[in-house]
Design a protein around this nucleic acid. Structure first.
Lengths: 214, 214
DNA sequence: TCTCCTTGGGAAGTGTCACTATCCAAGCAC
DNA sequence: GTGCTTGGATAGTGACACTTCCCAAGGAGA
């Protein structure tokens, strides 16, 4: 398959594909001669993955490159590779420990983990990007005067844990190891917009049930 | 309070505050004389809200302006105002109805709503931005070869409905009408990063429970 | 063979976005 | 009255995701 056909089948312009090749998001095609390169189905699949990560998951190009690097790293075991790929995802800033809201938020998040008995998550608080993101998000609430604490967070956390169980159950139905890692990353990235849309839709549904349309 | 003090108390540079004033995200201060304007606590609160929407909720400046306009519109009733504010939020593109994946995704989403008995949401499919976002997100999955259908989505939808019930219960604990609308918008915008972080943290916890750390 | 179109590749340019730096004249403080 | 600060306006910045332009080399039809 030539560049033009790859472009036609993916709906991505040749200029953009060339850009992705330059950025290392797509491996180069097999060079037939000076003016012809050959691409296969794997290129098409990878290209679609890249587009989904960028446009649905809103990941920056540099992050996509990093995540793909981990997915492709055959030297690591599945769990490590998956962890590395997932931990490359977030683009949250470092929490500022001087900030009183951040410190209060951290206390509440720690209380939450203790109350839930998430001992594994507790062990990861110093390094997990998700933990840091959570602290930052809770701090943003507190800065606006809402006293979001462990008690209010706990029911949400339990719901999201059930979502995580669904995620991993689904992941385990996939056979190959590479595919499992790729699926897990995809799940995490693409599932979030789905959950967000479902959340907003559910809010509309519940709001209409309570208050009608007017 | 002068600009410099507003800047100091909010941690936002005077240059950025001036930018927000120009963009209409902050109402102008009370002009004392040619070189002095006076800002109050409400300005500080609004500024923090704007920062949270932009940096935590990742909303574009133009969207923030639109959402604030709806929050401040006293001519409308609560439900309408809330709906208007929430519907101004998404920045999802229009689904391309020519696309086979989009059409298949729409079918699955419609089946999902029917199976769940979300009749209110069903009534809104032609106009709701959340519905369109959901279709697009499901289409992205299907394009990558994952057959995400109503059966897989339903348990997630039920979880998110329970989250929506929590959201609205919490909203009802707030007294004033303006505050309720503002709280509801804030909930929607700021709660999403919290839920996302909880989701990833839950995935880490569950993954460690199943497979250990290695 | 001679055109003429297409190909892959690289450099430079584009549009958007959220700021940020600079400038200015008018106060105010000592 | 001198020097710093203030609010306001204009222009510039840097990051980002492309996109346009140009080129030399193939290949295809007359």
């Amino acid at each position: 398959m030539r560049l033009a056909e790859l472009s036609a089948r993916s709906g991505v312009s040749t200029a953009t594909i060339k850009y992705y090749l330059r950025e290392g998001l797509l491996p180069p095609g097999r060079q037939v001669n000076t003016t012809t390169a050959d691409y296969d189905e794997e290129h098409l699949r990878r290209l679609r993955l890249v587009r989904a990560m960028i446009h649905v998951g809103r990941l920056p190009v540099a992050t996509v490159r990093e995540v793909l690097g981990h997915i492709d790293d055959d030297s690591l075991g599945r769990t490590i590779r998956l962890g590395a790929a997932l931990w490359a995802l977030p683009q949250a800033a470092e929490p500022d420990e001087e900030d009183e809201y951040v410190r209060a938020a951290r206390t509440e998040v720690d209380r939450l983990l203790a109350a839930l008995g998430w001992t594994n998550a507790q062990a990861l608080t110093t390094i997990s990007p998700s933990y840091r993101s959570l602290v930052l998000a809770v701090a943003a609430f507190r800065r606006l005067g809402y006293g979001w604490g462990a008690e209010l967070l706990a029911p949400y956390a339990q719901l999201m844990h059930r979502a995580a169980v669904l995620d991993l159950d689904f992941m385990e139905t996939h056979p190959s190891e590479t595919e499992q890692v790729e699926t897990a990353v995809l799940e995490t990235i693409l599932n979030e917009p789905v959950l967000q849309a479902l959340h907003r839709l559910a809010q509309e549904e519940e709001s209409a049930r309570r208050y009608g349309f007017e």
